[in-house]
Amino acid sequence: MKSKKAPYFFIAPALILLFFFSILPIFIALIISFTDMSLAGLADYSRINFMGVENYTNILSDPSFRQSILNTIYYVIIGVPLVVALSMGIAILINMGKGKFFSFMRLIFYSPSITNIVAIAIVWSFLFNPSDSIGLFNRLLHTIGLGPIAWLQDPRIAKLSLIILAVWRGIGINMLIFSAALTNIPKTMYEAAELDGATQLQQIRYITIPQLKFSTFFVIVTTLIGWLQFFEEPFVMTEGGPLNSTLSVSLFIYRNGFQLNNFGYAAAGSLILFVVIIIATLFQMKIQRKEEENTI
């Protein structure tokens, strides 16, 4: 006889933790976003004042918040397609090859994903060093007569430099998801196509890529959510500069919350980001559903 109470004991620890650290905080964030909560308020709750929607109206007209939104959109528009296309491409190439060498390449491409982002950001800052004797990239460019490029110092280039690093690091995990999905595609589909005289490129175009639809959708959604929260790279490498050109929404929230201690203001920013993430996810789901209907 199963006990009636036992399951509650099993799930209680996890549910209590999730309640306090995931669910309750949303409501607290909502409340403090309507106040002027700051360091003074932290010491003495009576000094917290209700502000209505003032934080929201202020933040939406704050030039650096607007800049951070534009930058984040830029990161998403360039970064997400790059990560999805490259990780799918590598997964397909590795899968076509098979054998020891190709399995080893899978490890190589995955390795950046598990490394510490702070350590890696420091390494890349060193690689991006503008001097062509210290920075490896500029030194390599110098040997072929190019550069030097001000990778992190030029406002027009800095965003792209951070994207290069984040793509390098983001490929691995998504490549694995595609690899796992590739092994699930039935062999008979390719055999049939081959009999019909389809070339290899046609097989990739008309069998492989359509069959990867579910994992592509999963990868797009998770990558999109990840890039909307882009934080460590600009935090460690550029501190959002030069001239706020790399400032992301997450970095804006962190800066206002924990460096300037404007908790109310930062909470308002974080909730705007949350709404954007939910809308982006729902939008993706809707597109996915529509496509499924069309194919059926």
């Binding site: 905080p25 949303i26 974080s270």
Partner: peptide, 16 residues
């Protein structure tokens, strides 16, 4: 709860 970004929870959790 997987949908909730860390940026939303970090300030309230810090205050708590």
């Amino acid at each position: 709860t997987m949908m909730i970004p860390g940026q939303v929870t970090m300030i309230p959790v810090y205050l708590m």
